[in-house]
Amino acid sequence: MNALDVRELRLRLPGTARPVLDGVDLTVAPGETVALVGESGSGKSLTSRAALGLLPPGAVPTGEVLVDGRDVLTMDAARLRELRTGRAAMVFQDPRAAVNPLRRIGDFLTESVRLTGTMSAADADRRAVELLDAVGLGPELMRRYPGQLSGGMLQRVMIAAALMGDPVLLLADEPTTALDVTSQAEVIALLDRLRERFGTGLLFVTHDLGLAAAISDRVYVMYAGRIVESGPAEALFEGPRHPYTAALLSSTPRLDGPTGRLAAIDGQPPDLRQELTGCAFAARCRYATDLCREEAPALRPAPGRPGQPAACHHPLEGSPADV
């Protein structure tokens, strides 16, 4: 059974002209690391938050979001609370915003399992100390306050907190964006070790393609609320099939890329107040044809590359060099 199974998830928000998530399909297997990449506003966070049943006010969802086989979209409040303290947990971008500065780390870690009565206070403390150790922090932190910790340390506390309920699914939404590059490596190394040790499925939300390539088994690329391409990280970065994936790659300043001007993508993603016919990327795509503007392309695999579907009428099938 998959840790996460999103099927045809469609989400409408009040006052918009088209669904903000438009038929998202995505899976995370137990012990697998999956990256969801895309630019600001593409719907990454909405997708990952939906796995916890966290929907914006007024949102109307259709489709299925199965965590460990159970549909989150049909759960009542009690079930959802149980889900969030147990099978699924989330690590956010800014750890400082997610803690109460006036409460000790120990209380923060044990609060949810104590409130739901899943563990006794003593068991909760023991588990918290064990997890602090797993994230490389000492038991003395239990008595410290958030203000006494660096950003990197606090993010490790957040990861420990997320693991308190033994989740099958860990959602990490830009968990290292607020950190320095070297602490980023430390947090990633940690997530990876824990995933291996506890068999947790990890959905990693990021706009950093390099990071996605570095850490994940599989990658989903999202544009304007749709998955436009997915596949094994290496294949996708070596030979992107969707023009948007290719354009993102070539507009990223890299240490091993060419110097000089970047191949920037002109324009901006479509506004939510604007209805879309055809491919959402057409206005910015150099390969766009009339067909693209009229008919939305479905996600289809390439002959001989079954694992790398792309939603494009004219996918790039050449070698990466001539993209």
Partner: peptide
């Protein structure tokens, strides 16, 4: 520390 494929955190 710059993430890239084959990176060893």
């Amino acid at each position: 520390s710059v993430p890239r494929p084959g990176w060893d955190p």
